[in-house]
Amino acid sequence: MNLFFGNSNKPQHLTILAPILSFTLLILIWDIITRFSGWSDQVFPGPLKVFISIHELVLDGTLLKHTVASLFRVTAGFYLAIITGIPAGMILGRWKPGMIMLNPVIQFLRPISPLAWIPLAMLWFGIGDPPAVFLIFLSAFFPLVVSTMTAVLEINPVFFQVAANFNFSRFEVVTKIIFPAILPSVIQALRITVGIAWLVVVAAEMIAVNSGLGYLILDSRNALRMDYVMAGMIVIGLIGLILDFIMKRLGKIDSVFWGNISH
């Protein structure tokens, strides 16, 4: 039991050791498949070949360049979504007529995959960073608005009565109640949306730009370098893991952690 729930007296060891074990196993299976599948190195490269390729790509700087390009787009689009989506969600959560009016529109636009916007995005913003940033913005904006709005609606109404009782100003209601109250849910939403944004950036880069990890994969496919394709995939996975880890840490800050208790 302890192995699965980490309740043993050495949980730190387990949380590090167990993933190492599972990754080793994954690489092992990968190696076995490449050896016995009968596919050539060009079609399905083994772990060793891919790691050598990663090493090459790191040394000549292409991997860093493409990673930075992708991260820049995600960051730009994501921040745009944060600075527009969270305030929009807060307003809609506190302003009922606005919510009644706009919520159906948001729910209508939300299920449309950001990738469906690619033709329009290219037409409107041309080639380069802007269409990719726009797509990432779209992918993060709607989930953020909806979860912020829901979080605001779920604030215990007693807190607003306390605010009235303590003569809070409007500004204080926002900074002392609404913002901290929704923070746990918003961080949860950010964690999910950064994952979506990271998914979308790769797809966007395959079409509209000539840099980024998505472009690296597409370009390597055109050159029939499957080892580079897999190298790109591995880096995408690793960065996704790091992004998720950062977001998870944010949720553990003391003044945010209460959300884990009360929900």
Partner: peptide, 20 residues
């Protein structure tokens, strides 16, 4: 005229702000 800080209400269920 409305709630005021001269008359404080202690609510039935805890109304402490959990983030403070």
């Amino acid at each position: 005229s409305g709630p005021s800080s001269d008359h404080i209400f202690v609510f039935q269920h805890s109304s402490l702000f959990p983030w403070m």
